[in-house]
Nucleic acid binder design. Sequence first.
DNA 1: GTATGTGAAACCGTTCACAGCA
DNA 2: TGCTGTGAACGGTTTCACATAC
Lengths: 226, 226
Amino acid sequence: MKFVKIPSIAIARLSVYARNLDLLDQKGVEVISSGRLADICGVNPAQIRKDLAYFGQFGVRGVGYYVQELLPEIRKILGLDKEWRLGLVGAGNLGSALLRHAEFIHGSYTFVAAFDRKPKRIGATIGGVDVSPLEAMSRLVKKNGVEIGVIAVKPTWAQDTADLLVKAGVKGIMNFAPVHLQCPSQIFVENIDFGLRLERLFYRLTPPQSKRHRVHMKSGWVIAPK
Amino acid sequence: MKFVKIPSIAIARLSVYARNLDLLDQKGVEVISSGRLADICGVNPAQIRKDLAYFGQFGVRGVGYYVQELLPEIRKILGLDKEWRLGLVGAGNLGSALLRHAEFIHGSYTFVAAFDRKPKRIGATIGGVDVSPLEAMSRLVKKNGVEIGVIAVKPTWAQDTADLLVKAGVKGIMNFAPVHLQCPSQIFVENIDFGLRLERLFYRLTPPQSKRHRVHMKSGWVIAPK
DNA sequence: GTATGTGAAACCGTTCACAGCA
DNA sequence: TGCTGTGAACGGTTTCACATAC
């Protein structure tokens, strides 16, 4: 047994590779080199080889990777070979969009429950999922085997929601609220915060003259009068 | 003139600092040390000081940072002291949610236009914004001064949409489609891809027994039988 | 010849540790 | 004394370059 450290960003890249391999497969491409795949994914060829090497040897030297062999391997690594069961909290604009979107995805996840604080939303069916009151969470999470909680509530309620989800027994949380959640360490949390990303775009678009430094390249060079 | 390199991830952290400084200000806190702010934001104190140091000297040695001085400085750096004008393409589930959400945000951005391919969606008003046909994009982007295009269309159409937006004259793109966009280098692109993030969660939740390696810690240690 | 797999080097970002200053 | 600002050390990721295998 040998220890290998895998950067978590490499996992995100595997998702990208999987998606593009899927497209290539649909186009009938049978073999792909790290160089060609790198072009498509917008990364360095060596990076692809390194990322794959963390998990095994999937290629053939002098040839490349067989798409129909590599794709299932990556799927398995990422855990895409099962259907994950999600529970939504917060059936507002974003929450509803997520439910409706997932309805038409024949993929590796489904929403099997949805919850909301507001009485007027309870009882509705969105994207094929019934909206239940928060009080039902513990029971329904167990009954429906919810593995991952998706938080789409207002920032103020995000921490309370996370606590409820953890108590109900979810193993992971996907958090859309712009808040740093405090969770037990065995719970895996992923945050998606698009205000933050939008602000990064604003920064990059802000004319340097209005600041005390000047942006030079998209990678973040700056000329500072020091 | 001296060159300073600023990691783009530091910009994202500035957003987090700004948010929490705002909360502190509302609570009436006047002075904050990097140590206390670091606790709140979940980062290292030295990191905060470094991030701020990229842009100037905002603190007082032996004291800390005056909240009411620091906050506007960060706002200015991030370009939050103006209202950015966004245009949406794709008024489906996600797009509609974005429009409706933005309607109630009294912040640094507004949607001033929305577009869709589907005739049945055209003419609708969502979140106070009229949905127009793609053909009107070039005209409306100019007329309404759209600076940033938000792509919320199906992956298949994302690249075409990006091309249209660039041709219409936007300066930045926020892309929600799970596709690597090909854009001229002067256009700033931010991608938000939650399938990717979800898959990272799946990976972390996948029992190691089912793979040929074993995850050891949340930071990504792995035991590989090599 | 060609493309993978992988040590070594380069690069980048984070953290430390302390000088500088209120 | 206390906390910022910052050069230096550290750790982790990316890229290079080449041995290896088809």
